[in-house]
Design a protein around this nucleic acid. Sequence first.
DNA 1: ATGGCTACGATCCGTAGA
Length: 254
Amino acid sequence: MKLATWNVNSLKVRLPHLNEWLAQTRPDVVCLQELKCEDAKFPRAELEAAGYQPACSGQKTYNGVAILSRGAANDVSAGIPGFQDEQKRVIAGTVDGLRVICVYCPNGQAVGSEKYGYKLRWFAALKEYVAAELSRHPRLAVAGDFNVAPEDRDVHDPKAWEGQVHVSEPERSAWRALLALGLQDSFRLFEQPEKIYSWWDYRMMGFRRNAGLRIDHVLVSAELAKRCTSCTVDKAPRRLERPSDHAPVIAEFS
DNA sequence: ATGGCTACGATCCGTAGA
């Protein structure tokens, strides 16, 4: 069973890449972020033709998340209950007994900014939500763009990034608070090569220089971690013409 | 040198991403 997450940075622009990648990779469940597409314009028919049932929570211009699965997801829920938010960043669903929470965590813009404050409040709300979901669903995954590089080894140039948004201590502390609920970073369950990232800046030939960050993650509950057999970043779509700045992350389960 | 792309919705530049 393959579970993937991919920030596509515009579903409309990336639909050809997504279709090709789905056909080649054949994941069972896909969490998508940054659709930048309202639900009325979601390419439902095209994805159904590719063999996937979508559940989406989109908006115009910004944000937007979806879960694609072979069979329709059950108990679909959008947003974080009790956390008022105009921004469509969360969708959850149950697929074959697996609870999947797809997240597009806030960017935060700059440490100390209003958006940074929002990011930290958002993470606090996510933690409460995930805690509640975990108590109901022992087999749970939280997958998406977390906009946090958990450790310095997840950063191409830790010195240049020191204290910046995505790596600041309060953000990493929010990340660790999620893990403390009983989740594990599936990527770190396995021995990994060095300098593996999931996002590269469009500018300055970031991808060519492998100047990236590992900010897209698949977190798994203890019970799911036991079944996890691999977690990898698929760099292939990042090499295509007009790519998303993020690459998909794929976790496999027995 | 604080920029450098890309996407979007608005126009022919501003906002946002990370």
